[in-house]
Amino acid sequence: MKDSGFFQEFEVFSKRSDTSPLQYQFSLLAPNQELALIMAQENFMRREPVADLWVVKRSDIRKMSVEERQSLKRLDNKDYRNTKGYGYLKKKWRKYEQEMLDEKEILSWGGKPSND
């Protein structure tokens, strides 16, 4: 995207603390990067505390092309790498328990108990 006119588009990101992740906040128009940072501070820091503020020229942000995104898709089946948890075990255990023989059933096979 070619810059047209005096103002350029900038994207503003912030961090609430040193350990928190960067979060997108808003876009703004400014003539240069220094003024964009000052405008971001004036607009944003009045509302909430900030540990760090990033201002990036929109034209410097590059996203992946359609072809590049296609290359991210897995070419072969590697579903075994994606964990789904162990929720299926309850169902499997219930089925196993239903197939097990219980003590009463086994004793019933012998007929009447003998009184020796």
Rank of each mutant, 00 (worst) to 15 (best):
L53D: 01
S17M: 03
N82K: 15
T83L: 15
F26Y: 08
R81G: 08
K95V: 09
K92M: 09
F13E: 01
Q70S: 09
K2H: 11
Y86I: 12
K104I: 08
K57V: 02
L107Q: 10
E97Y: 13
E34I: 05
G5R: 02
L28R: 02
I106K: 13
S114I: 11
K91S: 14
A40L: 01
E105W: 06
S27N: 12
N43I: 07
A51R: 14
K15L: 05
E11T: 06
L107K: 13
G85V: 12
D102C: 05
E99Y: 04
D60V: 06
G85S: 10
P31F: 02
E9A: 12
D18L: 04
Y86H: 13
D116H: 03
Q8V: 04
L101T: 10
N43Y: 09
A40I: 02
Q41G: 04
L37M: 11
L37N: 02
R81K: 10
I38A: 07
R94M: 08
T19E: 07
I106P: 00
E103T: 05
A36V: 02
N32F: 03
K57E: 10
F13Y: 15
K78V: 08
S17A: 03
D18I: 01
D60P: 11
E67G: 08
Y96S: 04
L35Y: 08
K15N: 03
G5K: 02
E9K: 14
S71D: 07
L37C: 13
Y88E: 14
K104C: 06
K112W: 07
L101F: 04
K104Y: 07
L53W: 00
L35T: 06
Q23A: 11
N115R: 11
L35K: 06
S27V: 13
L107H: 06
L89T: 15
A30I: 00
M45R: 04
D116S: 03
K78S: 08
K112T: 13
I38Y: 06
L75S: 09
K2P: 09
R46I: 14
Q33I: 06
D116W: 01
K84V: 15
L28D: 00
M1N: 13
G5W: 02
Q41H: 09
R47Y: 10
K63W: 14
P31D: 12
Q41Y: 05
Q33T: 02
L37K: 04
Q25V: 08
M100A: 09
S27M: 14
K92N: 07
M39T: 07
